[in-house]
Amino acid sequence: MARYFFEIENGGLHRDDTGAECRDLDEVRAIAVRTLTGIAAEEAVLHDRHTIAVAVRDAAGTSVLDVTLTLTAAWSRRAEA
């Protein structure tokens, strides 16, 4: 188990000073992906194009993993509001 820090970029950088204990690197990736899809479900539903990223660092501050999620909604026909 080691502690990793997940910084979220979603229109502004959201620093993580709490971190999360992870069993291994597979869990690091799983947490990063689930966090992004969870945030997208909550915050991206009102946008046609939305990019959310998470940068994972270890306790020493070294970069471990970057994950980016881009959602694109392309309308076939939609009247201008």
Partner: peptide
């Protein structure tokens, strides 16, 4: 703890921390 609250609301601890903030 935040990890326990996250497991109660069914999101990652990282996402929970974001909601809390």
């Amino acid at each position: 703890t935040q990890a326990e609250l996250a497991d109660a609301v069914g999101v990652t601890a990282v996402h929970f921390n974001r909601s809390l903030r």
